[in-house]
Design a protein around this nucleic acid. Structure first.
Lengths: 110, 110
DNA sequence: CAGGATCCGTTCTGATACTG
DNA sequence: CAGTATCAGAACGGATCCTG
């Protein structure tokens, strides 16, 4: 992932890549509404996600600096996730998308 | 795609599905900047897209009522694409995503 | 000109079993 | 509890050739 390669892509592409995938939007959204969630709590909130996909999504979101991962060195382990400052900046985007999505869903349901 | 199945998904999921894929965001973005584009013009604007992918993306966007397709019954055929009213409502979302993406790209490039 | 059809490789997503 | 490992299936993206 060279810098040039990234720079030739427009920033919309970039944003979609960072938020793309089936779950990332939802993960950020539930973290926004819950402040802090443990791995298992996140898994329950997402309902239809499995450990592998959730773990991968979380790892990518963390690498992209959208969420923060805090590991408590206990036994059994405890890991907490929350939005980073960068992640919080995305809330307006998601909020707008939610608004738009809701209107569409209501329309389609008539 | 039953109504219930859709309704159980939150509207953020819905929005991401409608805008998901590698090109839909960009298609909407270039249509926003060009008002009306023919199939071939769109293809050139997208650079690295092939006919199959472009055609499929356009079809889905049309089915989701985000773009309008106008066929002129001529020989050779002429087809024009533009944003629908619903599609135009997405511009603020994309704009926000672009802003966010740009900041990230600039940050990462330092 | 604007696609449609086909084939193919990659990526994504998922179910299941296992571990420090 | 919070993952990792493995395998499989589905979806996505792409190259190429063909057509009304």
């Amino acid at each position: 992932m060279t810098k040039n390669k990234n720079l030739t892509l427009c920033s919309i592409d970039y944003a979609f890549k960072r938020l793309g995938g089936k779950f990332k939007g939802r993960i950020i959204w539930v973290l926004y509404h819950n402040e802090v969630l443990r791995y298992g709590e996140l898994k329950k909130s997402m309902k239809d996600i499995n450990t592998k996909t959730l773990t991968l999504s979380l790892k990518e979101l963390e690498e992209d600096d959208l969420i923060k991962r805090t590991l408590y060195p206990e036994v059994p382990p405890k890991v907490e996730y929350c939005l980073s400052e960068e992640g919080k900046k995305l809330i307006p985007v998601l909020f707008y998308m939610k608004e738009w999505g809701e209107k569409q869903l209501l329309k389609n349901d008539q």
